[in-house]
Design a protein around this nucleic acid. Sequence first.
DNA 1: AGTGCGATTGACT
DNA 2: GTCAATCGCACTA
Length: 203
Amino acid sequence: MTAATPSYEILARGELPVDTVQLARYLIGKLVVRQTPEGVLSGRIVETEAYPVGDAAGHAWRGETPRNHALFLTRGHAYVYLAYGTSWMLNVSSEAAGVGAGVLIRALEPLAGVATMQQRRGVQNPRDLARGPGRLAAALDIDRRLDGVDLCHDGALWIARDVHDAPEVGISTRIGLSRETDRLLRFYARGNRFVSGPKALNR
DNA sequence: AGTGCGATTGACT
DNA sequence: GTCAATCGCACTA
């Protein structure tokens, strides 16, 4: 028995806040659980960013396309896309069906399957396994196969409740954007060492 | 059909 | 601190 076996109680869709920004904040302290043939991988969400309706930095801004289709699914579905040709990004759709918006999961505190993640990433330091959206997806073996998956159902990937209380949440501007750079839509577990970005954005 | 450009990362000065 | 890698897609024509 491990000392801290994580709980995998799936979050029901009805529990998810209907608003994109509220959902981004709500997801801090929840779990991402990935079921693979090799076993379960999981982590605690410590950093998110909201891309609400009307946000010029959001992929849904110019309307629905084949790529961003999953953003228009009802809240709680995975939107997975490739950035810079190298890094997969995991998002959670966040509004009613037909409305395009989402929350980017930017960092996890690894919990279950750490050895597998270390192997997958070729990295030993637990802090570096899922600190950053691209690393996170690589650690959990997330790519286009999971685009459109319902995260409120048992399957290859879902979101679960944590046994611990939600951490204190900090708010800042988002990272890596060229538009809408001043909006305070990034949420993070304050002081948590698995949060990405500069120190100034982790107070 | 051609072009530009990322919601990043890792290697390197 | 700088910078290239690398791919799919959206946009233009």
